[in-house]
Nucleic acid binder design. Sequence first.
DNA 1: CTTCTTACA
DNA 2: TGTAAGCA
Length: 109
Amino acid sequence: MSSDPSRSVSKFDDEDYPAFTMGRAAEMVGVAQPFLRSLEEAGLIVPERSSGGHRRYSRRQLRKAERARRLVDQGTPVSAACRIISLEDQLAEYTDENPSDGQEKGSSA
DNA sequence: CTTCTTACA
DNA sequence: TGTAAGCA
């Protein structure tokens, strides 16, 4: 059968493996370093820790951080943004493990 | 040079 | 939320 070395061998794709540093993550999401720390304090995103206590943000973490930035940028408190994203994340897991009905489709941007 | 922490504005 | 100072 055909093998695809370009495909992920582990369940961890480049979503959790690549861990960016603070300046990189902050630049990507467009926020300052203290903001990423506030998200961590809010419990929204807890990045892995590298030697010396240097944070390692993965793409998935940055995605949540970017979503938080959007809410906060619109005037949503960090505490509320943390709750909203947290609930969305939990809801996403629920819908993912419950492919019963595909009523998920409409995306009005 | 880059990150971390704490504090202040 | 953003910036500053000092430290690792």
